[in-house]
């Protein structure tokens, strides 16, 4: 602020206090050259930042996931209609298990993530009007843009079918340290806003994926869509 010249005023300013200086830091208000009065707000900002961005994530890292799948568990990916049977012993990191009377706990879109050792298995359902192959392409595209998959080279594709005989697509992608499987299904839903797509991503080292191939294949195969009305009729 440029201070006005005192002479321009009508008042005789000799008896008035001098105009303030916003930018002046008195010598006795300095600590290590900083304005003492500006230290506490800065400290508050730093403390909250440290707690929010570092301490809480650290606490979270100290707590192990202890939510193992037991026999009979079914993962609910939407309205209790899109489900899969997870492998016993894997850890459920996120997602909802199917419980009677609470099927709507997971709506569409819905997602779940399981892990075993260093392999992660994520499945998600969502609205999709297109083929399983198109869904696989779309998700490879999105993942590349997000840099989520460390693997990049597509090694091969094949058609798969689930337990109900619905056809899907599986893509194997290899990288230097990590390999990934992307499996997709599209389930027809005549009365819904769109068909339901399910996409499964399995990421781990190539050796581990190979070791666990049967467990993974079983989860992919048991991924089904069974509308409540259909179940009632059958």
């Amino acid at each position: 602020m440029t201070e006005p010249a005192e002479t321009t005023g009508g008042a005789s300013t000799t008896t008035l206090p001098p105009p303030r200086r916003d930018d002046w830091v008195p010598a006795d208000e300095r600590v290590a050259g900083f304005d003492r009065r500006t230290i506490w707000p800065g400290v508050v900002l730093l403390v909250v930042w440290a707690l929010w961005a570092h301490v809480m994530p650290w606490i979270n890292d100290q707590i192990e996931v202890d939510n193992p799948i037991v026999a009979g568990d079914v993962v609910n990916l939407g309205f209790g209609e899109v489900t899969f049977v997870p492998t016993v012993g894997w850890q459920l990191e996120s997602g909802v298990l199917l419980t009677e009377g609470n099927e709507e706990a997971a709506t569409i879109p819905g997602a779940a993530r399981l892990s075993s050792d260093v392999v992660s298995y994520s499945a998600k359902s969502g609205n999709w009007d297109g083929t399983a192959e198109e869904l696989a392409d779309q998700m490879i595209d999105v993942n590349e843009n997000l840099d989520l998959l460390l693997a990049k080279d597509e090694q091969g594709r094949s058609a798969i079918t689930n337990a109900d005989g619905v056809a899907g697509e599986i893509v194997y992608i290899a990288g230097v340290d990590q390999a990934a499987l992307i499996a997709t299904y599209v389930f027809e839903r005549p009365d819904g806003p769109a068909d339901i797509g399910v996409e499964i991503e399995v990421v781990g080292t190539p050796e581990k994926l190979e070791d666990l191939v049967e467990e993974i294949a079983s989860m992919i195969e048991t991924t089904t869509y069974r509308p409540a009305s259909q179940e009632a009729n059958s």
Binding site: D22, D23, R30, F34, D35, I39, P41, G42, L45
Partner: peptide, 13 residues
């Protein structure tokens, strides 16, 4: 003023 080198809060910001 945004730039205030003597202001501790400024550097934290």
């Amino acid at each position: 003023r945004v730039i205030q080198p003597r202001n501790f809060t400024f550097w934290v910001m």
